[in-house]
């Protein structure tokens, strides 16, 4: 048996994980080969010494540090449970490794998206573009600007007061407001495309309804 083969199998030999036949072959070699036997003895000494390594002692302040950290955690109710790590922290602390084909694929995808985006920006339908811009809150009716201004003022007044409201009242108010806003958005969009006078009237009614709702809840808070 070659010395190199014996050396490479020495750890398995020492840990007793060799088959009986191989074990005997190595043992026979070791009795005849002093250099290999010396390696065996040294490895035995290393493994024995490893089992008897002394325990090491950290600095005295460690317990105080641990105690302080736990105290800070327990001071906040419900924080004793395992800390929830934000997804951003998890992602930022993770080490990503990518293969060359993966990187090439990602670059191609990014390039395709860029070309697609540019193509759509250049070939955009002007009518659709005007519709999209009309979906914003920019005033489009004669009285709309004044109404929007009044609503904005009321909203800022109510926002400071709503903190003191009963949670149920707050929910009712938010739900009503949400419904009116949804209708407003829908009707506004219809008016932009149809220019129908009924839609225009409905739009103004909705603004007034929103204002009334705010005034009602303003009185409630007083």
């Amino acid at each position: 048996m070659e010395c190199r083969v014996v050396i490479n199998s020495l750890s398995d030999y020492l840990d007793g994980s060799l088959a009986a036949q191989e074990f005997q072959s190595i043992e026979a070699h070791l009795t005849q080969c002093p250099p290999c036997n010396a390696v065996r003895v040294d490895l035995t000494q290393i493994t024995l010494a490893a089992k008897e390594l002394p325990l090491r002692t950290p600095s005295r302040a460690l317990w105080i540090r641990i105690q302080n950290e736990i105290e800070i955690e327990t001071a906040v109710p419900g924080k004793v449970e395992e800390k929830k790590v934000s997804w951003w922290k998890r992602v930022s602390e993770r080490n990503f490794t990518f293969t060359l084909p993966q990187l090439a694929g990602a670059s191609m995808l990014a390039f395709s998206l860029m070309v697609f985006g540019m193509y759509h920006a250049l070939h955009r339908d002007p009518q659709v573009a005007s519709q999209a811009s009309s979906d914003t809150a920019n005033p489009i009716l004669p009285m709309e600007k004044d109404l929007q201004f009044k609503i904005q003022q009321k909203a800022s007044q109510l926002n400071t007061r709503r903190v003191s409201w009963n949670p149920e009242i707050r929910t009712v108010y938010d739900n009503h407001l949400q419904r009116i806003d949804n209708s407003l958005s829908h009707v506004r969009q219809s008016w932009v495309t149809t220019r129908d006078t009924d839609q225009q009237k409905l739009l103004m009614d909705l603004y007034n309804e929103k204002l009334r709702l705010m005034e009602d809840f303003e009185r409630l808070g007083k």
Partner: peptide, 24 residues
Amino acid sequence: ELNEIVQVGTDRPNSMPVVDRIAL
């Protein structure tokens, strides 16, 4: 193979120094 570490067949059976567990 551990060529760079093991010098087998050099006939230096007592190559291991006296070490204690701190050295380990």
